[in-house]
């Protein structure tokens, strides 16, 4: 009889190296560099073209 293989399922959090909840630290927004980046117009046009090909629409122009 073949040996039974026991597969250990690794959860997403473990696989991606997420932080254990008891080690999550409080981080203030003021301590993080928050720098805005304008969404690239070309990226938006690309997304809109893709959407228009599927006959979708802008919810808000």
């Amino acid at each position: 009889m073949a040996r039974k293989v026991v597969k250990k399922t690794i959860s997403k959090g473990e696989r991606l190296g997420w932080t254990p909840l008891d080690q999550v630290q409080s981080v203030t927004l003021a301590s993080v560099i928050v720098k805005g980046k304008r969404v690239n117009a070309r990226r938006r046009v690309r997304a809109a073209v893709q959407v228009s090909q599927n006959q979708a629409f802008f919810l808000i122009p």
Binding site: G13, L21, F58, I60, P61
Partner: peptide
């Protein structure tokens, strides 16, 4: 992740990636 009790990093989260794509495609 409730199985491993781990939290995603706050930078560039999976929700952010999905929401950004939808907003860019639906709001002009």
């Amino acid at each position: 992740d409730p199985i491993s009790n781990r939290a995603e990093d706050f930078e560039n989260t999976q929700r952010f990636r999905v929401y950004s794509q939808i907003v860019e495609a639906t709001i002009g």
